[in-house]
Simulated scan of single mutants.
Amino acid sequence: MSSLGLRFVGHSTVRVELGGHVVLTDPVLTNRVSALTRVTPPSTAADRADVDLVLLSHLHGDHVHLPSLRLLHPHVRVIVPRGAGDWLRAKGIRRVDELAPGEELEHGDLRVIGVPADHSGHRWGPRLTHGPQAKAMGHVIEGGGRRVYAAGDTDLFPEMADLGDLDVALLPVWGWGPTLGPGHLNPERAATAVGLLKPRVAVPVHWGTLALTGLTRAPGKHGRRMRHLLEHPPREFEAAVSEAGSPTKVLVTPPGEDVRLLDGVPE
């Protein structure tokens, strides 16, 4: 089996080193995303070094972040949900392929399988109809005898139980604000997802990285709540998985750090 390297770059961005390739999920590599500010140390050039494949789960601006995509080499292969390829090419991204749930593609020695997600696929959110739209999705990455599930943004969906033997599940456990809208996992629902997926290792993502500018310094209960949410969701997720009696090992990893797999192998 091939070794596996993971770095939680921040938010939904994970650097996956597998099968001789470097994959980035939903890259957010800048210090600002619209009205959001990165509240952890900045992403570095090492996060994007040698990347040859990018997986985009859906079109929301904190997942398809055009300034971050433009930091990558123009010949990096970018996989976008089916129906959004022309829109992304019109934004200057050169090498774009499309994928949908139920479809798969090969990239060298990797196989990428599109899987469902329960989340809005519209660029500007679930209540708008103008602008680009494509079905939100997750990805299973296979290579060197390893299987990694990158959920993107999603709530629970029944097909989670059918994704098969997983070494690692990258699961969202919160977001960037004081509340969650529809189509998201909170710590408790992410623990339920672990029960369906049964991965060897779960890595909580989509937490602790971005916040509305100034909110973390706000006085009173609003600032306190945001500061709490930047730190506690992954630990609450870990506790919920443990309470459920799951054998899955939860590896809580701060944004910007490598996931501590045992010699590159899920424990």
Score class of each variant (00 low, 15 high):
Gly144Asp: 01
Met137Gly: 03
Pro219Leu: 06
Ala117Trp: 05
Arg146Asn: 04
Pro204Asp: 10
Arg77His: 11
Asp109Lys: 00
Gly177Tyr: 11
Ser120Gln: 01
Arg260Ser: 10
Gly125Phe: 03
Gly102Leu: 10
Arg200Ser: 10
Pro116Phe: 05
Val148Cys: 07
Ala150Gly: 09
Ser43Arg: 15
Pro81Asn: 03
His21Met: 04
Pro187Gly: 02
Asp153Ser: 15
Thr25Leu: 11
Leu212Pro: 01
Val23Thr: 08
Ile113Val: 14
Pro266Ala: 12
Thr30Lys: 02
Arg48Met: 14
Gly208Met: 11
Leu171Met: 07
Pro41Asp: 11
Gly220Phe: 03
Asp109Leu: 01
Leu105Asn: 02
Met160Arg: 00
Gly20Lys: 03
Arg89Cys: 05
Pro182Glu: 10
Leu180Ser: 04
Ala150Tyr: 09
Pro219Gly: 13
Leu156Gly: 04
Pro254Thr: 03
Ala134Trp: 01
Met1Ser: 14
Lys198Val: 03
Ala218Leu: 14
Ser12Gly: 12
Ala202Arg: 09
Pro116Leu: 07
Pro126Phe: 11
Leu88Gln: 12
Pro219Glu: 12
Val265Ile: 13
Ile93Val: 14
Arg95Glu: 15
Ala193Tyr: 06
Gly144Ile: 08
Leu180Gly: 06
Ala45Lys: 08
Ser2Phe: 06
Ser34Met: 13
Gly131Asn: 07
Ala244Met: 13
Pro187Gln: 06
Leu59Met: 07
Glu231Leu: 12
Gly214Pro: 11
His222Asn: 10
Leu71Met: 15
Leu171Trp: 09
Gly220Asp: 07
Gly256Lys: 03
Glu257Cys: 12
Leu88Lys: 05
Val259Met: 12
Asp26Gln: 12
Asp155Phe: 00
Lys135Phe: 00
Ser57Asn: 09
Leu156Tyr: 05
Thr248Gly: 10
Arg48Cys: 01
Gly208Phe: 08
Pro199Met: 06
Glu236Lys: 15
Leu262Ser: 14
Gly92Trp: 09
Val205Glu: 03
Pro266Gln: 11
Thr209Asp: 08
Ala45Asp: 13
Pro126Trp: 07
His65Asn: 11
Arg15Cys: 06
Leu197Glu: 00
Leu24Glu: 07
Trp176Cys: 05
Gly208Asp: 11
Lys135Thr: 15
His11Phe: 13
Ser242Arg: 15
Ala117Met: 06
Thr30Asn: 08
Arg217Ser: 14
Gly175Arg: 08
Arg32Phe: 11
Arg189Gln: 11
Asn186Trp: 13
Ala244Thr: 10
Leu69Asn: 14
Ser246Asp: 15
Gly61Phe: 15
Glu231Ala: 13
Pro116Thr: 02
Arg224Val: 03
Gly256Val: 08
Gly138Val: 10
Pro199Ile: 03
Val241Arg: 01
Leu110Asp: 04
His73Leu: 08
Val265Gln: 14
Asp97His: 04
Ser68Ile: 11
Glu142Trp: 00
Val78Arg: 09
Val22Phe: 07
Glu243Ile: 02
Met160Ile: 01
Leu128Pro: 00
Ala45Tyr: 00
Arg217Trp: 15
His73Gly: 04
Ile93Asn: 02
Ala161Asn: 04
Leu71Ala: 12
Asp162Gln: 07
Arg146Leu: 01
Val9Trp: 02
Arg224Met: 06
Ala117Lys: 03
Leu230Cys: 02
Phe237Val: 08
Val23Glu: 13
Ile79Ala: 15
His11Ile: 03
Gly175Pro: 00
Leu251His: 09
